[in-house]
Design a protein around this nucleic acid. Structure first.
Length: 524
RNA sequence: GGCCUUGUCAUCUAGUGGUCUAGGAUAUAUGGUUCUCAACCAUAUUACACGGGUUCGAAUCCCGUCGAGGCCGCCA
């Protein structure tokens, strides 16, 4: 299958991503865009963005913005497209009406398309009839032989009409670079509507014209477009156009194994950004949905992907979107970040969660914060306690290995910034220990920690002293001491270790929280 | 209902006639390291949809069955 690709010299390959701006850019479309982008990069071709907004009612400029913003965030740069220019524009179908008009008029003149005046009711009735007798659903061709006079009369009366393609009856065979030959008889779809009027082509026609005009060499799209392909090929033939090459990607499925859609949580890719997924993680995850390398390698950067990508590694069957694996890859990429970088990435989430605030006023959304802010001091919103960037780094670092996505950071570290922790007294109790025991432990803890000088308040010392104490209290069971300590400091059943937390919290606050734990324990 | 595509562990997949008593990753389970959680390491469990052929030999080739998905719009 790649033999054919090699016939085309590098630089000549042109691919496109052609979304319709009728909703957010979701993860399935992103993958399609990505494979187009990858292919273009690999073959040193051109990646074109075309906005398919022929449906004026459903298309919205804000969705176009969402799409472009999403592509930019992911780093899939297109060489031609709206706002970018190029030699084959305009790149919005709504701005290409003049171009379409030429083609539609030509088809009409050559009698390859014809006016159809059938009403929706008529069409519906015919469809039901066909279902009844088990035939493929296709138009009755009632209007195919209308006389010039009849057409003129109907048009004059302003009778609603559309333009239909006089589909030649034949077997259409095309070659999919991934799947081999696919054959479909055109009698299965019949005379389809290709335009509403002279300047408003529908999807199939507009696409054929645009791909030709934009000199697209390869159409890489979802498998759900296989049934459209014969229609487009016939249309291309009618226009005397050589069709491009086709690659139909397997679909992405939800956990219930149906085409991934909004109800599976296929939200805008920008929401993945908001959840704290990293671009390399998303890319790495997505590429494995339908492609695999020759080796067992699991982690790929974009450059290495471009290098190793090949159509031969493509899968033909649909793949279920595995959210757990996305999280795993994301966690992996988070662990690759330096602690400073990670803190910078987490910062907006801490602001968003109202845990910290900065003295600086910013007009920008916190998610677009800039790095200079990070050289400044912050304070806890609740306690007004000051935090340097270094101290924030120390906090975030504690959870470096525990993060799967950035948005989790705030509920993990919130206890550092709060005045009072709220938890039940049962949480303080280690395994089968008695309440009394825990109380004694907290007392001893307070006494021992109180003796440590402020200048010696650091992780290593704390560890030494506390482990010694733990030995005295629980012999081998350090949990007797460490569990209530950790709960007292964090109010959580799971967290980072108590020594490093105590270090960052500081002596005063640590003792305060132990005191608080005692109160919680004695309360009813 | 018609047409098309597709079928290896729960999930993503390796595998192109012998090296497959089927490999890797995620997930799960157990164990190891300073309480918990995570990370890391080790171990374990789980798959060639089914039935026929072809062949000395089949996950791999052929046929049939079954399953799954997609498309059948004056949406794209």
């Amino acid at each position: 299958m790649t033999k054919e690709l090699k016939l085309i010299s590098p630089g000549e390959i042109r691919v496109r991503f052609a979304p319709s701006p009728t909703g957010p850019l979701h993860i399935g479309s992103v993958r399609t865009a990505f494979f187009n982008y990858l292919f273009a990069q690999k073959e040193q071709g051109t990646f074109v963005l075309r906005i398919e907004d022929t449906d004026e009612e459903r298309s919205k400029p804000e969705w176009e913005k969402d799409i472009i913003e999403g592509l930019n965030w992911l780093g899939f740069q297109f060489q031609e497209g709206p706002g970018k220019g190029g030699n084959f524009g305009p790149y919005r179908q709504s701005e290409r009406k003049e171009i379409y008009k030429k083609y539609i008029e030509k088809l009409l003149k050559e009698k390859k398309i014809y006016y159809c005046f059938c009403s929706l009711e008529e069409l519906e009735a015919h469809k039901n009839y066909l279902i009844g007798i088990g035939q493929p659903l296709r138009y009755s061709e009632k209007c195919v032989n209308l006389s010039e006079q009849e057409i003129a009369k109907n048009l004059e009366q302003g009778k609603p009409c559309v333009l239909r393609f006089k589909t030649p009856l034949k077997k259409v065979i095309f070659k999919d670079l991934l799947r081999g030959e696919i054959e479909q008889d055109s009698e299965n779809f019949g005379d389809m509507i290709v335009a509403r009027d002279l300047t408003t082509p529908l999807y199939n026609l507009a696409l054929v014209i645009d791909d030709f005009e934009m000199k697209i060499t390869h159409i890489i799209r979802g498998e759900d477009h296989i049934p459209n392909t014969p229609k487009q090929i016939l249309l291309a033939e009618a226009l005397g156009i050589e069709p491009p090459k086709y690659i139909h990607l397997p679909l992405i499925l939800g956990p219930d194994k149906t085409k991934l859609s909004k109800r599976h949580g296929a939200k805008s890719v920008l929401e993945y950004k908001k959840d704290g997924y990293l671009v390399p993680a998303i890319i790495n995850f997505l590429v494995f949905l339908g492609w695999s390398p020759k080796t067992n390698k699991e982690i790929f950067s974009l450059p290495s992907l471009i290098q190793e990508f090949s159509l031969e590694g493509m899968q033909k069957s649909a793949a279920v979107f595995n959210f757990q694996k996305l999280d795993w890859i994301n966690g992996f990429y988070i662990r690759q970040k330096s602690k400073e970088k990670l803190t910078e990435l987490c910062f907006p989430y801490l602001i968003e969660a109202n845990l910290i605030e900065t003295h600086f006023e910013t007009e920008q959304c916190p998610f677009a914060c800039n790095i200079e802010l990070l050289a400044q001091k912050f304070r806890a919103k609740e306690t007004k306690e000051e935090f340097s960037f270094e101290r924030l780094v120390n906090i975030v670092e504690l959870y470096h290995e525990r993060l799967k996505k950035l948005s989790e950071i705030s509920e993990l570290v919130d206890f550092f910034f709060k005045k009072k922790l709220i938890y039940s007294k049962e949480l303080l109790i280690w395994k089968n220990a008695e309440e009394k025991e825990i109380k004694q432990t907290l007392d001893k803890l307070k006494k021992t920690l109180g003796k440590i000088k402020k200048e010696n308040w650091e992780r290593k010392n704390l560890e030494q002293v506390l482990l010694k104490l733990a030995g005295e209290i629980g012999e081998r069971d350090r949990g007797k001491l460490l569990w209530p300590l950790r709960v007292a400091l964090t109010g959580k059943k799971a967290s980072a270790g108590p020594f490093e937390i105590a270090e960052i919290l500081g002596k005063e606050k640590t003792l305060e929280r132990i005191e608080q734990a005692k109160k919680i324990l004695s309360a009813d």
